[in-house]
Computed example of a mutant assay.
Amino acid sequence: MSYPPSTGSSGQGGRSYPAPPPPPGSAPPKGTSGGSGGNKALVVAVVFLGFAVLVAAAVVFVVAGRGADEGSASQDAGAGAQGGGDGAGGAGGAGGAEDAAAGEGEAEGSAEEPQEDTVVFGPDEELSIEVVSPQTYVDLDGDPPLVVEDRVDGYDFVLRPNINGVAFENSGGGIAPLPEGGEAPDRAACLDAVETNGSTGTGFSNGSRFCVQTDQGRVAYIEAVSSPGGTGTATVQATVWE
């Protein structure tokens, strides 16, 4: 079969046929647009995008690392403060418990060992008093007590003979008669008797008992061992507390 001669890419008055492909290894014909420029732009875009992704990842990693460090530091500081508070609270609690135990021990010791009253004269020391007319003065604040016929400042009671025997008197009202035959009171009981039942005087006979508050504020317990029934020698047992 024969073909008409070709006049170019399109013949006039005849069919047109595409040009045959160039042989391998030959350069493309001039005037054709190759893919090298497009490929270069694509490569640059990919490289730039990859670089941006790496930069963003690095920023995220750095920020996350800082947050983790700050959170760890905050946790450590909180744990340290809590540990310090627990330690201080424990030490304070232990000290408070020891102080409370010591206070309870002292209170128990005080309850078990009550303080004894200080005795100035006695206890139950016998004292002889010469009863004279008009009266004999006795000062219990001395050691031994002072017994005189003449009036002295600060005397605590007088023994005065009268038609009924002997009177036991104190014009200041510091004498409290007690029932006969009872147990000897302590200082507190005697003071309470004077404050609640004090009088200026009462009779003095064998077995009579009295509580007296002295001029200097001391407290005394007096018991009549013997009474002359008038003038003569009287004997008493006396205890004087500070």
Rank of each mutant, 00 (worst) to 15 (best):
P4Q: 12
P4K: 11
S6K: 00
S6H: 07
T7I: 08
T7R: 07
T7A: 12
G8A: 07
G8F: 00
S10R: 13
G11L: 02
Q12I: 04
S16E: 14
P18E: 08
P18I: 04
A19F: 10
P21H: 03
P22S: 06
P23R: 10
P24I: 06
S26R: 11
P28S: 08
P29A: 14
P29D: 10
K30C: 02
S36T: 12
G37T: 11
N39C: 00
K40L: 09
K40W: 02
A41Q: 08
V43E: 12
A45L: 08
V46F: 06
V47Q: 06
L49T: 12
G50T: 13
F51Q: 12
F51L: 15
A52M: 15
A52D: 13
A56K: 05
A58D: 08
A58P: 04
A58G: 15
A58I: 08
A58H: 08
V62P: 02
V62C: 04
A64K: 10
A64P: 01
G65I: 00
R66A: 06
R66V: 10
A68T: 07
E70Q: 14
A73W: 04
D76N: 13
A77G: 05
A79R: 11
A79M: 10
Q82K: 12
G83L: 11
G85Y: 07
D86V: 15
G87C: 01
G87V: 04
A88S: 15
A97D: 15
E98R: 12
D99V: 06
D99R: 01
G105L: 12
E106Y: 12
S110W: 02
A111M: 06
E113M: 06
E116D: 14
V119G: 00
G122D: 14
D124S: 15
L127D: 10
S128V: 09
S128K: 11
V131F: 05
Q135K: 11
V147N: 05
R151V: 13
R151K: 13
V152Q: 13
D153N: 14
G154P: 06
R160I: 03
R160G: 07
R160Q: 14
N162R: 03
N162A: 10
I163V: 07
N164V: 13
E169Y: 05
N170L: 04
G173V: 00
G173I: 01
G174S: 14
I175L: 14
P179E: 13
E180N: 10
E180Q: 13
G181K: 02
E183R: 08
A188R: 11
A189M: 09
C190M: 06
L191K: 08
L191S: 13
A193N: 06
N197Q: 04
T200V: 05
T202M: 01
S208R: 04
V212E: 08
V212S: 00
V225E: 15
V225Y: 03
S226C: 05
S227A: 11
P228A: 07
T231I: 14
A234E: 09
V240P: 03
E242W: 11
E242G: 08
